[in-house]
């Protein structure tokens, strides 16, 4: 009760229930996941900018974030919004540097290049589901909950993504080792 009264009468406390210190704790907990999620979607050095943009956007609405909800889920959705915006913009505004990996000649292909090429061949929705399933080990139900789509849709996207990915990798050959 006293705390509530203090909050009520402290003009600085009205909208600061979630502080920057709290935000930093959440950042430390989720930064690797966010970074990996974005990187596997874009496969480029722009990941640093997009991670910063994600947390900046998250901070702007962090005050309304309820701690009962999962921060990881919440930040993931923000990260994907930022990523999709970036990919959309990149499609409209082609920059050769962004496709450096994809343009590598076939003989010089490393596993990383091959994976990049195969992933970037998938459409964004398929790629997201594919990465969550095969890279991060999420189940189809968990993916459905995370990105708020039906499990059937997840399975369908996963099926087509796998088909396309495997076909591409088989054509170009996997360098084992």
């Amino acid at each position: 009760m006293i705390t509530k009264l203090k909050t009520l009468f402290n003009p600085l406390a009205f909208s600061n229930e979630n502080t920057l210190e709290d935000f930093q704790v959440y950042y430390e907990e989720t930064k690797d996941f966010v970074r990996a999620s974005i990187y596997w979607m874009i496969r480029s050095h722009h990941v640093d900018d997009l991670v910063q943009e994600t947390y900046l956007k998250a901070w702007k609405s962090f005050k309304s974030f309820e701690s009962k909800a999962s921060f990881k889920t919440w930040i993931y959705r923000i990260a994907m919004n930022v990523t999709y915006d970036f990919l959309r913009k990149k499609t409209n505004d082609l920059n050769i540097d962004d496709y450096q990996l994809v343009d590598t000649s076939k003989d010089d292909l490393t596993n990383e290049d091959l994976i990049s090429k195969a992933l970037l061949k998938l459409n964004e929705n398929q790629r997201e589901v594919f990465i969550l399933f095969y890279k991060f080990g999420y189940t189809t139900i968990e993916i459905a909950e995370l990105i708020e789509i039906k499990e059937g849709t997840v399975k369908s996207r996963l099926h087509y993504a796998k088909e396309s990915f495997v076909e591409f990798v088989k054509e170009d050959g996997v360098q084992n080792g």
């Binding site: 930064k31 690797d32 970074r35 990996a36 990187y39 596997w40 496969r43 990941v47 640093d48 991670v51 910063q52 596993n111 990383e112 994976i115 990049s116 095969y134 890279k135 080990g137 796998k162 990915f165 495997v166 990798v169 996997v174």
Partner: peptide, 18 residues
């Protein structure tokens, strides 16, 4: 597929001053 993706270590560490 999982093994192939696991072998990919192209993601660099986050900058220290992130």
């Amino acid at each position: 597929i999982v093994d192939l993706l696991k072998r990919d270590e192209s993601l660099k560490d986050a900058p220290r001053n992130e």
